[in-house]
């Protein structure tokens, strides 16, 4: 089973050199801004910024190409679904209707719908590079300490670190258990009838659950034995001081986001209307 996970790699770039905290905050600020605003001008500006950052990170294309294809397929399907379910959503939002092409029944292509769906796509396009960038350029070890630094309880931050530590192990176990099950005639693929597949899934999940519970016992004993949870705070081995560059980047991100919000909501609506 080929495993294609997005993985951090150590490249010398200005983005890699930024502190994990900075990248985490930029990702959060960028995502929230991208999610809330629907103003085309702001979205385009944000997209330009996030693509520039991506370019600066020098992450080779093949490291994320697979995920990029998945994203494209996913967003295409989403676009199609929006059109099928709500072909007049654009008209509803922008209040005008410029029909470009009648398709069939109550399906017509309007300029408003096109523009609305273009904006939906833009929103996704703004967030994806930021998320990929955060994932590909942040040392996973810095992830937990960064979360703790921005106020998340260290126990929860550490839980996330444990998740990343044990994904490969749990995955290996899943593969082992399901191949052994397959030898005994337990199959989850399309070769079996759906009802049977569900029943067969229990035969694979049950040993997986039991061994996961066993693992939880072992790991918690190990954490206890090394004093985890004894204090109200803890320190982190993988942590770096914030530099002036970090401060500058963070300030820029906050200012940019504030500007985007101001421009968007200046007229009291999150949408930018080109039709009036």
């Amino acid at each position: 089973m080929a495993v294609k996970l997005l993985a951090y790699s150590d490249i010398a770039s200005p983005v890699h050199r930024l502190n994990g905290v900075t990248k985490l905050l930029c990702f959060i600020i960028g995502s929230v801004t991208g999610m809330v605003i629907y103003d085309t001008r702001c979205l385009l500006a944000l997209l330009a910024v996030s693509l520039t950052a991506f370019y600066l990170s020098k992450v080779p294309f093949k490291q994320y190409s697979f995920v990029l294809y998945l994203i494209l397929i996913f967003s295409l399907l989403n676009q199609l679904a929006i059109f099928l379910f709500a072909p007049e959503q654009g008209t509803l939002i922008y209040g005008t209707r410029h029909e470009l092409l009648h398709i069939a029944g109550h399906y017509s292509l309007t300029a408003e719908q096109l523009f609305y769906q273009f904006n939906v796509m833009l929103k996704y396009a703004v967030v994806v590079p930021l998320a990929l960038l955060f994932l590909l350029t942040t040392d996973p070890s810095e992830f937990a300490s960064s979360l703790n630094r921005i106020g998340v309880s260290y126990k929860i931050a550490y839980a996330i670190s444990l998740t990343m530590r044990y994904i490969p192990d749990v995955q290996q176990e899943f593969v082992n258990i399901s191949t052994a099950a397959q030898a005994r005639g337990i199959d989850l693929s399309r070769k079996e009838k759906p009802g049977r597949r569900l029943k067969n899934a229990v035969s694979i999940l049950f040993p997986l659950v039991l061994s996961t519970l066993e693992r939880i016992e072992k790991v918690s004993a190990a954490l206890e034995l090394r004093g985890f949870g004894r204090g109200r705070r803890r320190t982190w081995y993988k942590t770096r001081p914030l530099t002036t560059t970090d401060a500058a980047v963070l300030t820029a991100a906050v200012l940019l986001s504030a500007a985007a919000f101001t421009v968007t909501f200046w007229d009291g609506s999150r949408f930018y209307n080109i039709f009036v």
């Binding site: 985890f228 803890r234 320190t235």
Partner: peptide, 18 residues
């Protein structure tokens, strides 16, 4: 439990707040 050797060795010290 650590993501790397160094972090795993450091684990006790991290919890002690060193």
């Amino acid at each position: 439990v650590g993501l790397t050797v160094a972090e795993d060795i450091a684990f006790k010290l991290e919890n002690d707040g060193v």
